[in-house]
Design a protein around this nucleic acid. Structure first.
Length: 774
DNA sequence: GTGCACAAACTTTTT
DNA sequence: GTTTGTGCAC
């Protein structure tokens, strides 16, 4: 079975030999009893239910080491799958650290997708591909689908290609090929979904391309149709380990079940309470029914938490307790003391950002009896990425260094994708999508019409576009400037391809030559827009990234599978990211802003998936809280701009679910001052948009959080009773229309107008608005 | 064929 | 408030 011996196999063997020689297993002493059981129960199916912060990676990596140490498997006979490259990397590092040697010899430790690619490259011909197939990203995929939709004469206004892309994705997640698509799906996409799906798969095969879903689906298909191939791998992979099992979709589940079918030595690690990828096809059901799938499975619960303080843990448990359908775990900790979860409400999103910015600065100095926290120890976790904006704006103005994780990824940028298209086209001339992308970038006078002509010729002759273009030129089907430019481009590609085969030329030089001679670099150099320099910078970085690879092909594959951006790690910065991106991470201090109904839990999630959606949102809340080690600060705003329109917000229902004993309610800034006579009268005028009169806040107050039932909002106005106006009051302005007062400075008012935005106006131009607020 | 102006649709979450 | 798509003038 030499074909299995990948590059690392040699080191792998020596590593195993070395490990085997070391009989004792001191590494096991480091584990608690449950972790130890998880690491030592090597044979047969094992389900490790590992709560947040319970040391699951430790247990998992120790298990790998133990497998090696007991001589049960060579490093290259262990299949270990993770979801993210980061998790894979971490696991490799930790195994290496435990063994005391680099683990290059674990070729089958990787993400589902990267392992899928490797398997598929080996057996591509079994699904009608050749092993040098291209991996399309979502953008290519969408463009391809758009073409098909338009060709089918479908009104893509009513039936956007995007929708179809989503539908097909879901089908692939469920391991439904065009051939085994259930009848229930017949009506999808105006009844044309199934046919288009078939067409799409056909087209992909013609292009010798696959999308992300195919990386798993094709492999499943191969395993199902070719028993011999499956048997080969069943024998080879003696032990299987799966991380984040709660995130697997049906295709991945089938993939695993097929592979584990023989010996059943499969160990799945997961936490049903942290399943947050249902929208991507993940099936919590997979983990819930593991014991049914693998009768006699050992179920091991890791419940001792080593990360968070008791208050934080209690808050998280309180929230997650609202979910049904749980396997049930009770996290506990030996730790004592610590801060309660802090809760604070704000007037609007900007004030929230302002407060958090100030608080971050204060905490980095050390306040409120807390130790001082470095910026690297703090993170802000948001539900949706657009929430980051307010923070970025604020942090830029106060000069607080921050880092965004998971924003627009490097490889997704326009210039990178263009450059990649050039590279792709050099390595695989049949890549029509790449061709279409760059024929006219930079502008060569080859617009839609020219491209259409090329397509006609190519289709008629059954050849890729590149060849079709050549034919078109030969038949003089194109005139003028366009023809000359096209000829030049084709010649260039022929030349670059020869260079690629020239051993004297490195792929880095080649990449530079391509970008240069194509005029692509020049295009940006001549561009006067402010982002042009940054794009050139990115192109340089792209070329630099090539250094780590042997050739262009290797690089292209790498980029297709790397979804995370390697953001600059230099300097102390506070981290800004989504809750999804934060899974698996931990920070001493965590801020969780935007806990408002509709935003979090997300309205869309609830509309689309009802109770199931709400439960997933709740798990997201759980994930968020459990990221915090020492300080967790939850906040919400009473008003927020949504699509540029101001909306009043209610505190999240999850806030009601926080156990009061473990929560400390903070007073927002500027809300001190005496409570005078004005308070009572003012309160009656308070608009419904008022945070502190909202049902959620009132519930909070009445639950004995140690605060008198007086509305804090009343206190504000008391101190400013000199003004005839109050914060939050609805007003009318001749020119700007209706709005709400957000700031008072003497006779100057800051008003947020429904249509006109924030304005500073003088009080006498304002009249009260008696209509129903918001 | 290119570039600009305006309208509309839109924002979860990502391998 | 943003991005993306469409229509129109050059």
């Amino acid at each position: 079975m030499s074909s299995f011996d990948d590059s690392g196999a040699l080191e792998g063997a020596s590593l195993a030999a070395r490990a085997m020689a070391a009989r004792p297993a001191p590494y096991l002493d480091d584990l608690n009893p449950e972790q130890r059981r998880a690491a030592e129960t090597l044979d047969g199916p094992v389900l490790m239910l590992a709560g947040a912060g319970t040391g699951k990676t430790k247990a998992l990596t120790t298990r790998i080491v133990h497998l090696l140490n007991t001589g049960r498997a060579h490093p290259n006979e262990i299949l270990a799958v993770t979801f993210t490259n980061k998790a894979a990397r971490e696991m490799k590092e930790r195994v290496a650290r435990l063994v005391g040697q680099a683990v290059e010899g674990m070729p089958w430790l990787g993400t589902f997708h990267s392992i899928g690619v490797r398997l598929l490259r080996r057996h591509a011909e079994l699904v009608g591909l050749t092993s040098n197939f291209t991996i399309l990203d979502t953008d290519d995929q969408l463009r391809l689908l758009k073409q098909l939709v338009q060709a089918a004469n479908i009104d893509d206004k009513r039936w956007p290609a995007r929708l179809l892309a989503g539908i097909i994705d879901q089908w692939k997640n469920r391991a439904w090929t065009p051939d085994n698509l259930p009848g229930s799906e017949a009506g999808a996409y105006d009844g044309k979904g199934p046919a288009l799906y078939r067409l799409y798969q056909l087209r992909l095969r013609e292009l010798n391309a696959v999308d992300f879903g195919d990386l798993l689906l094709h492999v499943v298909t191969i395993f199902q149709r070719h028993e011999d191939v499956l048997a080969q791998y069943q024998r080879w992979f003696k032990y299987i380990l799966v991380d984040e099992y709660q995130d697997t979709n049906v295709a991945q589940y089938l993939w695993l079940r097929l592979l584990a079918g023989g010996h059943r030595n499969i160990c799945c690690v997961g936490d049903d309470d942290q399943s947050i990828y249902g929208w991507r096809g993940a099936e919590v059901g997979n983990i819930l029914r593991f014991e049914k799938d693998f009768p006699g499975a050992a179920v091991i619960r890791l419940e001792q938490n080593y990360r968070s303080t008791p208050h934080i843990l209690a808050a998280a448990s309180g929230v997650i307790a609202g979910n049904r359908d749980r396997l049930g775990k009770t996290l506990w900790t030996a730790a004592k003391g610590g801060h309660k979860v802090r809760l604070i409400g704000h007037w609007d999103g900007e004030e929230e950002a302002r407060w958090i910015g100030d608080e971050v600065e204060a905490m980095s100095r050390g306040t409120r009896g807390m130790r001082s926290y470095g910026l690297d120890e703090m993170a802000i976790l948001v539900r949706a990425s657009h929430q980051m904006r307010a923070f970025e704006d604020r942090f830029l103005t106060i000069g607080l260094p921050y880092r965004v994780i998971g924003g627009p990824r490097f490889y997704e940028r326009l210039e990178i994708r263009d450059a990649m298209a050039y590279f792709r086209l050099v390595t695989s001339p049949a890549d029509d999508l790449a061709f279409e992308r760059i024929v006219n970038t930079p502008k060569r006078g080859l617009g839609d019409k020219a491209v259409q002509k090329i397509q006609v010729v190519a289709r008629r002759n059954g050849v890729p576009l590149m060849q079709g273009a050549r034919l078109l030129l030969d038949q003089k089907g194109l005139g003028g400037k366009g023809a000359a430019e096209l000829a030049r481009l084709l010649d260039s590609f022929a030349r670059w391809r020869r260079m690629m085969d020239d051993p004297a030329m490195t792929h880095i030089e080649l990449a530079e030559i391509i970008l240069d001679e194509s005029g692509y670099t020049a295009m940006w150099q001549n561009d006067r827009t402010p982002e042009a320099p940054g794009r050139l910078e990115n192109l340089k970085e792209l070329v630099k990234a090539l250094e780590g690879f042997e050739n262009l092909q290797g690089f292209l594959e790498h980029v297709a599978l790397i979804m995370e951006n390697e953001s600059d790690g230099a300097g102390e910065k506070i981290t800004l990211m989504t809750l999804h991106a934060a899974k698996g991470l931990e920070f001493p201090a965590v801020f969780l802003p935007g806990w408002e109904d509709g935003l979090f839990p997300s309205q869309r999630s609830m509309d689309e998936s009802g109770q199931k959606g709400l439960e997933e949102e709740r798990r997201l809340a759980y994930v968020g809280i459990t990221r915090a080690e020492e300080v967790c600060t939850i906040s919400f705003a009473g008003n927020r701009r949504v699509y540029g329109q101001w909306q009043s917000q209610l505190p999240s229902r999850f806030i009601d679910e926080l156990p009061p004993d473990h929560v400390e309610v903070l007073t927002p800034p500027g809300l001190y001052g005496g409570r005078g006579v004005a308070a009572a009268s003012v309160e009656t005028r308070a608009s419904e948009a008022d945070v502190y009169n909202s049902p959620g806040w009132r519930r909070l107050q009445s639950r004995g959080t140690g605060r008198p039932p007086t509305s804090p909002r009343a206190q504000v106005t008391a101190s400013q009773a000199v003004s005839a106006h109050t914060l939050g009051e609805r007003v009318f302005h001749q020119k700007f229309g209706y709005g709400a007062i957000t700031g008072i400075e003497g006779d100057k008012l800051e008003v947020v107008f429904d249509k006109a935005g924030v304005k500073k106006v003088v009080a006498r131009f304002i009249t009260g608005a008696d209509d129903v607020p918001f």
